[in-house]
């Protein structure tokens, strides 16, 4: 019995080392996925972010056809990188709605003029309220929403060209 006690510290240390080694292989994740994937979009009603596009409500996300909802901002650099990919998705026939986070109409208009405009509707979320209610943690971020208004997929960060098939597949699965 006493013998076992003597080797207990080594065993505990081994466990500790195991946990830390596991930690090195799987460091604490810094992306926090939304827990709302699989549920209906929260209710919201956002005014237009620019005069050229209508605003956005949750009803616009349940029109029988799957859509892509993109959270973006004119002050966000990865959003610039993402813009051409969204254009490409639009050419593929995807309906893209957007929510502009903490943005002014003139800045959004300038962003659309400079980097392209793939959006059907753009709501303005000046205090990130709708973003928080989606469980989204930053910009850019995109949600695939099916025709009944249920969130089917979340993409955190900018959509890069190699992510396109994944997004298109998610949209197809949402049919």
């Amino acid at each position: 019995m006493r013998k076992v006690f003597l080797w207990l510290p080594l065993a505990v240390f081994g466990l500790l080392l195991g946990v830390m080694g596991h930690g090195i292989l799987n460091p604490e994740q810094t992306t926090i996925p939304s827990k709302l994937v699989g549920t209906k979009v929260p209710a919201f009603n956002l005014p237009a972010a620019v005069p050229s596009h209508p605003g956005l409500t949750n009803a616009d996300l349940a029109t029988g056809k799957p859509v892509l909802l993109n959270f973006f901002a004119s002050w966000c650099l990865p959003c610039i990188a993402e813009a051409p990919v969204l254009e490409e998705l639009k050419r593929e026939g995807v309906v893209i709605h957007a929510i502009a986070i903490r943005d002014k109409p003139e800045d959004v208009a300038r962003f659309l003029a400079e980097h392209g405009d793939p959006y059907a509707r753009i709501g303005s979320d000046v205090s990130s309220r709708v973003q928080i209610s989606f469980g989204s943690s930053g910009v850019p971020e995109s949600f695939v929403i099916d025709g009944k208004g249920v969130i089917r997929h979340q993409h955190i960060g900018d959509i890069q060209p190699q992510d396109m098939p994944k997004i298109l597949k998610a949209l197809k699965d949402a049919q």
């Binding site: 901002a73 002050w75 966000c76 650099l77 903490r102 943005d103 000046v126 990130s128």
Partner: peptide
Amino acid sequence: APAMADSRMEAAP
């Protein structure tokens, strides 16, 4: 980090 650039808006009320 650049991704966390600040907006030009004021802080929420």
